[in-house]
Design a protein around this nucleic acid. Structure first.
Lengths: 194, 194, 194, 194
DNA sequence: CATGAATGAGTTTTCATTCAT
DNA sequence: CATGAATGAAAACTCATTCAT
C-alpha cells in the first residue's frame, strides 16, 4: 500500500514540475523533494528519467481517453459525436492545464515523436481512445460525411485548432467559456465535414 | 567577407542542431564544431545562447514574412488571399523543414511565449508579416465573411491544422502534394468562413 | 562522521590553495581534488564559490577571536591588555601562516571590504572579538590613556604594523622570536598611547 | 612620437581598470578598448599581461620616489625627515587613489611578493627612493634615535599604519585632513623613536 | 607597425545516476 | 526497500594571446 503511494507521489510531482518548468527545469532531485521521497527512490519505480517521462505520458493518455469515452454518444449522428469529443477534450485541457502543458511538452520532444510514430503506424497494440477518433474519421470518410482526406489530415484539422486554442487560453490570450468552446469546435467541424 | 561567413555558419549550425535535437540537445560546443569555428567565436556574434536563439528566430520570421508577402494578391477577394497565405506558408515549411522545426521549438519555449505575448498585445512595433494576417482576419470579421471570433481563435483555426499537418509531413506520416496542400487550406477556410 | 569530514576537507583544501595562490589561483576543481572529493560535492556544502570563501573567513575569524579572548586579562591595566592582544594575535598568525594569508587575501578583496564596512558601521550584530578591540580603544581614548584619534586610526596604528610584520616574517624577510614580538607590540603601543 | 603615446594610453587604461576592478576584472580587451588601441597592440609594448602589470608598478614606484625626494629636508633632524616622508606619502596616496589601489593590489599578489623579495635582499640594483628610507632608518638606529629594530620592522611600523589609514580613507571610513595626517604620522614616529 | 577577429583551454556550476548505509 | 550524499561528465561562458590582413 505504501509502494503505489510513493509511485503516485512521484508521478504527481513530476507532472507538476515538468508542466510548469519543462523537462529540463525539473531535476530528479526536485521531483524527489516535492514527492517527499529520497532521490534514489525514484529509480526503484522508474528505470531512469526517460522512462518516468514516458510512463507519466501514458497515464495521462489513459486518463484522457477515459474522459473522452465517458458519455460518448455512440448512437448519435457523426456531427454530434465529433462535437462531443472536441468539446470534452477542450474542456478537459482547460480544467487540467498541468495535464495539457505536460502533453504538449511531451509531443514537442523526441519522446513524443517516437510515440506518435508508433501510434500512427499502428505498431502499438494498445491505441487507447485514439481508436475512437480513428473509427469516427474512417466512418466519416466512408459515409461521405467528411472530406476525403487521409486520416492524419483530419486529425490535424480537428486537433490543431483545439491545442492552439487551449494554449492561448492557458496563457491568458483568450478567455474560453462554454459558448466559445462550442463555437470553436463547430468551426472545426466545418473544416472536416463535406 | 569572412565576418558574415562565420556568423552565417554559426546560424546555420544552430538551426540544424536545434531543429533536430532541441535547444538542450544543441550545446554551444557542438554548434561551434558544426559551424567550423572555435567555441569562443560564437560569443563574438551573439552575447549568449539566448540571444543566438532569439536572433535566429527573428531571421526566420523575416524570411517567412518576405515569402508570404511575395505575390500576395492584395486586391483579390478574401478567400483567395487566405488561400494564398495558407498555401504559401505550408509550402514554405515543407520545403524548409529545418526552419519549421526551429520555429516550432521556439514557440514551445519560454522565449516563444514572450514573443507571442508581445505580438498579441501589439507591444512590438515591428510585427512584420503578422500584420497581414491580423488585417485579413479583422477585415474578414468586420465584413462578415468570417465567423465572429476573437482574433486569437481565428489564428488557431487557420494555423493549428497547418502546423500539425506540416509536422506530420516532415515526420513522414503523410505525403503532401500540391493538391493535398490546396485542399487542406481550403478546409481551414471552411472553418473560419461563415 | 563522514559529513563533517568532507566539509572539513573542503575547507582545509580551500584555505591552503587560496592562501597560497589567491582566490583566482584556486579553481573549484583543484579545491575538490586536494580535498579528495568530487567537484560537485563542494556544492552540497557551499552554495557557490563566494559562499565558500565567506564561510571560510568566518570560521577563521571565530578561531582567532577565541584565541584572543583566551587568557585576556580583563582586570589588568590597559597597556597590558593591549600587549596581550597584540602579542597573541601576532603569535597566532606566525604559527598559522595559512590562516594569515587567507585573512589578508580576504580583506583585500571586494568580499572583505563589505565585511569591514559592516563591522565599522556596526551593522553586524555579531562582531565577535572585534568588540574587544573597540572597547579597549574607546576606553583608552575616554580615559586619556590613548591619543584622541578616531577608532579607525587607532586600529590602523595597532594592526597595520602587525600585519606588515607578519607578512615579512612569513616571507622570510625577518625572523620573529618572542622577544622581537614583544618589542614590536610595545612599539605599537607607543604609537597609540599618549 | 605616436609610439610612446600609445604606450602611455595603455598604461593609463590598465592603471584605471586594475585599480578599480582588480587584476582579474581588467581583461586585456578592456584595457585595449579604454586605451583606444587594438587588443594586439598591447603585445607590441608588453610581452604579456604579467609584464604590463610589473612595468606599470615600476612606473608608479618611480613616480612615488620622485615625489618623496622632492623637498626632502636632507639637513633637518631625523624626526622632521621622517615626518616629511610620511606626510608626503600619505598625501600622495590620498590624492592619487588609483595609484594607491594599484600598488596595494600589486603587493597582495604573487608579483608583489617577488619584487619585495628582490628589494629587501638587495638583489635589485635600482632600489629607487627606497634607499632614502633605508638610510634614514639605518641612521636612526645607529644614532640611537630610533629603536634598535631590524630594518624590516621599522618599515612595518612606519608604513603599516600609513597604508591602513589610506585604505580606510579611500573607502570612506575616515576623512583625513591635514591635521589628522600630521598627527597620524607623528604617532608612527612615536612607535619608531626611542 | 597596428589591428581585432578568432581561438580553445580553463572556469564555475548543474544534475542524472549510483551505492553504502 | 528507502535513502540521500557523492559523483563526474557536460554545459555556458571568459579571456590571454595569436596572426592574417
Amino acid at each position: 500500500m505504501s509502494k503505489p503511494d510513493k509511485r503516485d507521489e512521484i508521478v504527481r510531482a513530476a507532472l507538476e514540475l515538468i508542466a510548469e518548468h519543462g523537462f529540463h527545469g525539473a531535476p530528479m532531485a526536485m521531483v524527489a523533494e516535492r514527492a517527499g521521497v529520497g532521490a534514489g527512490t525514484i529509480y526503484r519505480y522508474f528505470e531512469n528519467k526517460d522512462v518516468l517521462i514516458a510512463e507519466l505520458y501514458e497515464e495521462l493518455e489513459d486518463k484522457i481517453y477515459a474522459v473522452l469515452l465517458e458519455g460518448y454518444p455512440t448512437e448519435k449522428p457523426m456531427r454530434e459525436r465529433f462535437l462531443h469529443l472536441g468539446k470534452t477534450l477542450l474542456r478537459f485541457f482547460i480544467e487540467n492545464p498541468l495535464d495539457f502543458r505536460y502533453v504538449e511538452q511531451f509531443h514537442n520532444s523526441p519522446y513524443g515523436v517516437a510515440v506518435r510514430r508508433d501510434k500512427i503506424l499502428g505498431t502499438r497494440n494498445k491505441n487507447g481512445g485514439c481508436d475512437i477518433f480513428r473509427e469516427l474519421f474512417e466512418e466519416g470518410v466512408s459515409q461521405q460525411v467528411m472530406k476525403d482526406f487521409p486520416l492524419v489530415i483530419l486529425f490535424a484539422l480537428a486537433f490543431g485548432p483545439l491545442l492552439a486554442v487551449t494554449r492561448d487560453h492557458i496563457l491568458g490570450f483568450v478567455a474560453l467559456d462554454d459558448t466559445l468552446i462550442a463555437r470553436t469546435i463547430e468551426a472545426c467541424w466545418d473544416s472536416v465535414r463535406r
